[in-house]
Design a protein around this nucleic acid. Structure first.
Length: 291
DNA sequence: AAAAGCAACAACCGCCAGGGG
DNA sequence: CCCCCTGGCGGTTGTTGCTTT
């Protein structure tokens, strides 16, 4: 019995997304959020399956993505987390705000793996590489099905993730205790963004009431669609500029594409390299009609 | 300058888990 | 309890751009 396809593929487009498709998707999510990925493409006028839309949004269009190469610090964090979690990229990504599992996975496969091997470290076990005389299978049973097959195909090496409940970072957090912010945790009365921990910087953002209302006014000024509370909250967090403790810096770049504008209270981030690549590149955000 | 090889990453595919009926 | 649907995850592939020959 064949698997039912995730969507009706007849007439659906595949392959790279066009800017027009990106615009449609972002505009739709801006206006409506994403209630149901399966229904979204039809409602947004896209000839894509919902899965594809979801991936595109999560991995590329989401405004809170950092983009660009991982910093050395981030790389180290990935290695640490991978040592504890194995190929659980989504878990790893959940500890790295602004980074997607796909991005981390790609970076691991293309950069970190090689780097570790060069350093004489087995990227699977995080142990020093041994001569390939003994093939240990002691840890293989810990790994999930797919990573096992890949690992076996790639290299006959043991090792892998540990129990998902294991603590990392000296017990700073548990892997199943992803620091997600809940709507009720958003305190509009105070603004205490950016703890020292990069892993919690985005999710710990609490919007100041004045900025909150200013932002709403700004959005209205710009003709942006009305948001429901959840969407609004997520957008507030999405545009937080950790490095400058500044919500409007990122939003300004997002909206205006440059810092040269006459809007009060809108200043671009001082260090453009700290801004999301999609903002810096003016693509695809600059293509969207915001009115 | 052209071709071949390589690296990076966006996107796809198949499977799984959880929730609802 | 079972089945179906949906969202999510991880592995893999395809495409594109860059570097080397």
């Amino acid at each position: 019995m064949g698997r039912r396809p995730c969507c009706d593929r007849v007439g659906l487009k595949k392959g790279p997304w066009t800017t027009e498709e990106d615009r449609k998707l972002v505009n739709f999510i801006f206006a409506n959020g994403h209630c149901c990925w399966r229904a979204l493409p039809k409602l947004a006028g896209l000839l894509r399956c919902g899965k594809s839309c979801r991936l595109r949004w999560i991995n590329y269009l989401r405004p809170d993505l950092k983009r660009g190469l991982l910093s050395e610090q981030e790389e180290k964090l990935v290695i640490d987390l991978h040592e504890q979690l194995g190929n659980r990229w989504s878990k790893i990504a959940s500890h790295m705000p602004g980074r997607t599992d796909n991005e981390i996975k790609n970076h691991w496969n293309t950069h970190i793996k090689k780097k570790l091997r060069k350093m004489g470290i087995d990227p699977l076990t995080h142990e020093p590489l041994l001569p390939p005389t003994t093939s240990t299978t002691t840890d293989n049973h810990h790994r999930d099905r797919t990573s096992q097959s890949q690992d076996q195909q790639e290299e006959e090496e043991g090792g892998g993730p540990l129990d998902s409940s294991v603590e990392v970072n000296n017990g700073a957090f548990c892997t199943d205790e992803v620091p997600l912010i809940e709507p009720h945790e958003i305190n509009l009365g105070t603004c205490a963004p950016s703890s020292s921990s990069s892993a919690s910087s985005t999710s710990s953002c609490i919007i100041n009431e004045n900025e909150n209302s200013s932002m709403i006014t700004l959005m209205e000024d710009l003709g942006l669609p009305a948001f429901d509370d959840d969407w609004h909250n997520s957008m507030m967090m999405s545009f937080w500029d950790d490095d400058n403790d500044n919500f409007f810096g990122s939003l300004n770049l997002f909206v205006n594409g440059d810092s040269d504008n006459d809007r009060p209270n809108l200043t671009a981030s001082s260090d453009p390299t700290q801004c999301p690549r999609m903002v810096l590149d003016q693509e695809p955000w600059n293509l969207f009609e915001l009115s």
